[in-house]
Write a protein that binds this DNA or RNA. Structure first.
Lengths: 193, 193
DNA sequence: ATGTTATCCAACAACATGTTGACTTTTTCA
DNA sequence: TGAAAAAGTCAACATGTTGTTGGATAACAT
C-alpha cells in the first residue's frame, strides 16, 4: 500500500474541477451538442490540449462524471444490503436523495431537456440489477414480464421526481422526498394529491 | 381554397421519407451527436445540400419529427375532451398507445440511451397542460406543490413503460398497456407484481 | 407545352477536431 | 534540497464537417 490511496496530483484535481465547473455552466446555457472543447477550455481558462489528457470529447467527459455518481450509488446499496433484502426502501431512498442533493447542479442538467438520456438508462440498469437480484434470491426465478414494466415505470418515475425536486433547488428535505417516493411506488402516484 | 389542402410535391414526400428512414437507422447504430449530415444524406442517397432545404441540422430534424407526433397527441386530447373532464384515463391511454405503436421505431430511438431528453420534457409539458388545465377548471386553483411531483412521476413513469413496451416490439396490445398504465397510476406500480 | 419547383453538383471559406513535439511549471520522493 | 516524473502550455498541422452559393438539370403541376 505505497500510494494506492494517495490523493491525485493537485494540478489534476484543479484541472478536473475547473473543467467540471465550466461544463456545468455551459450545460445550463446550451445543449451538449453545441458545447465545443474550444469554448469549454476557454471558459476554464486552460489549454485546449489539456482537455484531451482526460477526456475523448465532451460526451465522454459527461460519462466520466456520471461514473462517479454511480460509484456513490453502488456504495449506498452496499451499505443497505439488509434493507434491500427486507424490502425496506425508505432508508435507501433517503441516502439516494442525499447523493442527488450533493450533485444537484449536475443532476439538474443531466435531467434537463438538454440532458443525457443515457443517464436515465444507466440508472434504470443499476436499480434493476440491485433490486431484481435480491428478488430473485428471495422468491426464485421470475415468470412473467410484469417486472420489466414495473421497474421501467418506477425508475423513470423516480427520475421525474428527482427532476422536479432539483428544479425546486431541493427545497423539500431528503426525508420528505424519500417518503413521497415510497408512497408513490407503493400506493400509486395519485395517492399524494 | 385553390391548393390549400393539396398534397405536397411528390419529390418532397420522397425526400422527407428517405431522410427519416436513414435517420432512424443511424440512430439505432450511434448517438445523435455522432450522426453527420454527410453520412445521413449518403445513406439516403441524396445530395447534402438538399438536407438543408428542410432542416437546420440533425437535431432540428428530430425536433420536426417529434412535432408531428405531438400534433397527433393534440388530436387525441381534442377527441377525448369529455374523458379528461371526467377523469376517464383509460380510453385516452388506449389511443395514446396506438399513436406510440404507429411511431414505434422513432419512439424506440428517442427513448433509447442515444435518445432525446427533450422529447421526454415535451411530453411532460403537454400532459401537464392538458390534464392540469381541466383539474384547475374542476377544482379551482391548486394550493401545494404535490401536483408537480405527481405529474413528473407519472409522465416519466409512463415514458419508462413506453420504453419497455417498444423494446418488446409492442407485443402487448394497446388495451393491455392502457390497463397496465392506469393501474400503475392509480394503485401503485407495485400492485402489478 | 410551359412555367415552377425540387434536386443535383461543385466549390468555397470558416471552423472544430485530434494529435504532435518542444518547452515551462509543478509535484513527488529519495 | 535536488533530480526525476508528471502536468500543463503553446504553436502548428492535416483532416473532416459545416453551411452556403450559383448554375445546371430533372421532375412536377396545370
Amino acid at each position: 500500500m505505497e500510494k494506492e490511496n494517495k490523493k491525485e496530483d493537485r494540478r489534476v484535481r484543479r484541472t478536473r474541477k475547473l473543467l467540471t465547473q465550466a461544463l456545468t455552466e455551459l450545460m445550463q446555457q446550451k445543449q451538449i451538442k453545441d458545447i465545443t472543447v474550444t469554448e469549454l477550455t476557454e471558459k476554464a481558462d486552460m489549454n485546449r490540449g489539456t482537455f484531451y489528457l482526460y477526456y475523448r470529447d465532451v460526451f465522454d467527459m459527461i460519462d466520466k462524471i456520471e461514473d462517479e455518481m454511480f460509484n456513490g450509488l453502488d456504495r449506498i446499496f452496499a451499505q443497505h444490503s439488509e434493507d434491500v433484502a427486507s424490502n425496506q426502501t425508505e432508508p435507501i431512498l433517503i441516502d439516494l436523495f442525499s447523493l442527488i442533493e450533493e450533485n444537484q447542479e449536475m443532476c439538474r442538467v443531466l435531467l434537463s431537456p438538454h440532458g443525457d438520456m443515457n443517464f436515465l438508462h444507466r440508472l434504470n440498469e443499476v436499480m434493476h440489477d440491485k433490486f431484481l437480484n435480491t428478488w430473485v434470491e428471495l422468491r426464485g426465478p421470475l415468470k412473467d414480464n410484469a417486472f420489466d414494466y414495473y421497474y421501467s415505470f418506477a425508475v423513470f418515475g423516480c427520475a421525474g421526481l428527482i427532476h422536479a425536486w432539483v428544479n425546486r433547488s431541493c427545497k423539500e428535505s431528503t426525508e420528505e422526498m424519500a417518503k413521497l417516493a415510497d408512497r408513490m411506488l407503493r400506493r400509486g402516484s395519485l395517492s399524494v394529491i
